[in-house]
Structures are given as structure tokens and as C-alpha cells.
């Protein structure tokens, strides 16, 4: 599982305060904690600062990379902010995220076309949120082909079919799961990603739902997720599920995690 650590996000109060105070130690600590817990990317988001987003996002990238030897997932639809962040980023960054929404697409495509950047591609268009598997496949088809035409390699694309809350419609869980299966089938070699915790919005006991959903999504082929890497229960769900579906050779990761006392 390619884990994108979600904790450096300005919509969290403590992070917002740390950004305002330019408190680098707090940001560094969140970055290194996530790096020590299997994150492959450190997501950075300064979206609540409309005016200063470019400056703050670049600062977050620099500060996070001082503490974690990992690439960042640059989480913004604002081309100025993405550009500023890329300028200071070391290694190959991930862009979170492009979609078929015209403004977002036109803003971000010039920055990513022909690069080696990793790209999260949201199954969303100006026509609204996709509901059925078919809606998602249609958007994905156009978006993935556009990205390929812009010289972005298939294996650098993380397609996100959008998780919507099952509290609102009982078909939203399977709508996502079946889309993961269909997308990985259709585009061999593509990665998938999602903000998984949306599934449990509006319900109590969210942790339990999120973990169960992760296990189901892994069975369908999900191989990337934006999560809190410090959530031990979630990590346990991932490690055990990956061993069970044959994605862990000789159960090595499972055994390593067990011996390290990582299971909840």
C-alpha cells in the first residue's frame, strides 16, 4: 500500500496554528512521525490560507523534507501554490490532484505535462459527482487518456474514483469498490488512491467502518490511500489484508509488523 500521510493539512487547527507561527518543529515532528509509520508521501495542504497559500505551501514542503526523507504530495488546485511548492521540492513530487473540472484541469495540466511527477486524478467533472461505476469509468477514460497524451506515464497516475458516504446512500460503498476493480482491470499498471474516511461520514464508530472498508478495497485492488499513518488499527487492517490477498510475498511484511509489535 502506497500511503500518503494526510496529517499536514491546514484545516486541522494545530497545523493551522503551526503554519501561522512558522513553528517548524511542529511540522517536522508530524512529518517524521508519518515517515516512521510507513508513509510513502507526506501530503502538504495550506488551502485555508487563500492569500498566502503559495508561500506557506512552499514552506511546508521545505520543512517537511527537512525531517522526512520522502517526497511530498502537493495538495492544492492553485497553480501558483503548486508551482511555488515544486520549486523547493526535492525528488519527485506527487500532485494532489487533477480532475476533469475545467478550471482545475487547465490550471494544473501545464505544470505536469511531460514530467515524471506522480498525479492523483480525481474522477470528477463539471457535470458533478459521479454516482455509478459507469459515471466514474467515463470520466476516468477521458482523464487518463488526456494525461497519457500529455506524456504522463500510466504508472505515475493514481486514479481516485471518489469515496462518498454510505450514510447517505447504501450503494456508495459498492459503487467505489466496483470502480476500483474496473479501473485496475481496464488500465493495467495504473495506481489507485482515495480519501477513504469519507465512507464513514455521518455515522458513529468511524474507525471501524474505515478499517473494514480498507480491507474490502484492498481485495478489489486499491494500492494507494490518503490516511493517517499513525492510526495503528488502520495499519493493522492494511498489513493483514494485503497478506491475505497475496500482495505480501512470503508474508514478510506481516511478520515484520507482528514482530515489531505494530498490531493493535
Amino acid at each position: 500500500m502506497i500511503i500518503i500521510g494526510e496529517l499536514i493539512n491546514s484545516s486541522r487547527k494545530s497545523v493551522k496554528a503551526a503554519i501561522e507561527a512558522k513553528d517548524a518543529d511542529t511540522i517536522r515532528k508530524i512529518a517524521s512521525d508519518q515517515a516512521e509509520n510507513n508513509a510513502a508521501y507526506i501530503d502538504v495542504n495550506a488551502g485555508t490560507f487563500v492569500e498566502n497559500e503559495p508561500e506557506y505551501l512552499a514552506w511546508l514542503v521545505q520543512t517537511a523534507q527537512e525531517a522526512a526523507d520522502l517526497p511530498c504530495a502537493i495538495d492544492s488546485p492553485n497553480p501558483k501554490a503548486v508551482e511555488a511548492a515544486l520549486k523547493v521540492h526535492k525528488g519527485v513530487a506527487m500532485i494532489n490532484s487533477i480532475s476533469l473540472e475545467k478550471e482545475r484541469y487547465d490550471n494544473l495540466m501545464p505544470l505536469i505535462a511531460g514530467t515524471d511527477l506522480k498525479v492523483v486524478a480525481l474522477c470528477m467533472s463539471d457535470e458533478g459527482m459521479p454516482v455509478t461505476v459507469d459515471d466514474r469509468l467515463k470520466i476516468a477514460d477521458k482523464l487518463v487518456n488526456d494525461l497519457l497524451k500529455s506524456n504522463i506515464a500510466l504508472e505515475n497516475i493514481f486514479i481516485d474514483p471518489l469515496v462518498q458516504p454510505v450514510s447517505v446512500d447504501k450503494t456508495y460503498g459498492t459503487g467505489f469498490l466496483d470502480s476500483i476493480e474496473a479501473l485496475t482491470e481496464k488500465f493495467k499498471g495504473i495506481h489507485t488512491a482515495c480519501g477513504l474516511s469519507n465512507i464513514s461520514y455521518g455515522l458513529p464508530g468511524r474507525k471501524q467502518l474505515n478499517r473494514a472498508f480498507m480491507i474490502q478495497a484492498i481485495l478489489k485492488g486499491l494500492d494507494g490511500a490518503i490516511i493517517n499513518p499513525l492510526d495503528k488499527g488502520m495499519q493493522t487492517a492494511i498489513t493483514t489484508a494485503e497478506a491475505l490477498v497475496g500482495r505480501d510475498d512470503y508474508c514478510m511484511n506481516y511478520l515484520k509488523a507482528f514482530r515489531a509489535g505494530l498490531f493493535e
Binding site: P165, S167, V168, Y201, G202, L203, P204
Partner: peptide
């Protein structure tokens, strides 16, 4: 107050 949840409200 968090005593009822979205599906129940729906």
C-alpha cells in the same frame, strides 16, 4: 447533539 445519525434522519 449526535444522538441520531444521517441514515436515521433520512
Amino acid at each position: 447533539t449526535g444522538e441520531m445519525f444521517i441514515p436515521e434522519v433520512l
